[in-house]
Amino acid sequence: MGRVTARRRITRVDLDGATRTRPDTLAAEEPLEIRVGPAGGPRPPLAVTMRTPGNDLDLAIGFLVTEGVIASPDDVVTAQLCAGDNEPNTYNVVDVALAPGVEPPTTDPSRNFYTTSSCGVCGKASIDAVRVRSRHDLGADPVTVDATTLVTLPDTLRAAQKAFDATGGLHAAGLFTAAGDLVCVREDVGRHNAVDKVVGWAARNGRLPATGHVLMVSGRASFELVQKATLAGIPVLAAVSAPSTLAVDLAAESGLTLVGFLRDRAFNIYAGDKRVITPPR
C-alpha cells in the first residue's frame, strides 16, 4: 500500500549559504481508480483521481456521496481496496458494489471523471453537469456558530496536520462541531480529495447528513467544495482563503453559510450570515 510521504534527494540552493544535496520528505501522489457497479454485476472504472494514499475507502465513499451517486452507506454492499492490474501491486483501486435498487452511475465520455490533485471538476463538460442537487435542505438547519469559535478553527486544524508538518505540501479538511470540537481531519495533495475523505468518514460512521457541523478547509473555497458540503448536508463551510463567484452563488442558493479569509481573528461572510453570532457593535 502506498505511503503518505516519500523521501527524495534534492539540491538545496541558498544564496546566503552553502549549496548542498540532502534527503527531503515529500507528499506522496498516486492515482486511485474507483470502480462502481451493482453487487454481482460488472463494476467498471468510474473515476481516476490523483491523491495521497491513505483513507482510500473514505475517499471513494465520499466521492460517491459528493457526486450524488449514493446518499448513505446503506447504498453500498461492499467497498474494498484491490490490488489492481499492475505489477507490482500498488493497491490503487477501490471496488464499490452498490446495494440493490441503487442506480449505477452512467460513464459518459462527455462527463469524464478523471481528476487531478488540484481540480475536482476539470474533466466535466459544463457547469450544468457539475451542479448536482443536494438531497438536504441546508436552509432548514438551525445551527449557529459563534464568531469567537470560528476564529479558533484554523489553528486547531493546523495543529492536526501531521503530514503537513513533514512535507509542507498537503491540504487539509476538518469536520468540527458548532462548539469548535474537531471530530475528523484528513490531509491530501488535492483539496477536493481531503474533503471527500472527511465526507466518506462521516458516511461510514453514520454521521450524514452532517447537520450542525462546520467544514474547515486549509485553502480556498471553490465551487466544487461548496457543492461537496451541500451534498453532505454540512451547513457551514469555512476557508482560510478566498471563495470564487460560483462558490458564493451556490452557497446562497443552497442555504449554506460560507466564510472566507478566516485568519488572524477575522473573516468575511459571503453567504448565510444569520448563522454567525458576532460581537455587538
Rank of each mutant, 00 (worst) to 15 (best):
G123E: 08
T167I: 04
D137V: 06
S117I: 02
A160H: 10
F176A: 01
G84Q: 08
P154W: 00
P154I: 01
V121S: 13
R111F: 04
I127F: 13
L150S: 01
C119H: 14
F176G: 00
L175A: 12
T106Q: 13
A173W: 00
P88T: 08
A147M: 04
I127K: 13
S118M: 08
T116V: 05
G168N: 03
K162L: 12
A172L: 02
T116K: 05
T148D: 15
D141T: 04
G123D: 04
E103H: 10
D108F: 05
F164Q: 00
R135T: 09
T156N: 08
S134G: 08
V93R: 04
A140P: 10
L153T: 02
D141V: 13
V151E: 11
K124H: 14
P100D: 12
V94E: 01
N92W: 01
V94M: 05
D155K: 06
A147D: 03
D155Y: 02
T152P: 00
G84Y: 07
V132P: 01
V143I: 14
L170S: 03
Q161K: 11
F176K: 02
R135V: 04
D146M: 10
V93I: 09
Q161P: 07
V145Q: 10
L150H: 05
V102L: 12
A159Q: 13
T107N: 14
A129C: 04
H136T: 11
K162Q: 15
R133I: 07
S118T: 12
C122F: 09
D141C: 06
R133D: 09
V130H: 05
R158K: 09
D108T: 09
S118I: 09
V143G: 03
E103C: 07
V102D: 01
S126I: 08
A173P: 07
A129F: 08
D155F: 04
T107Q: 14
E87V: 13
V93Y: 02
D85T: 11
I127H: 12
L157E: 00
V143F: 03
T90C: 10
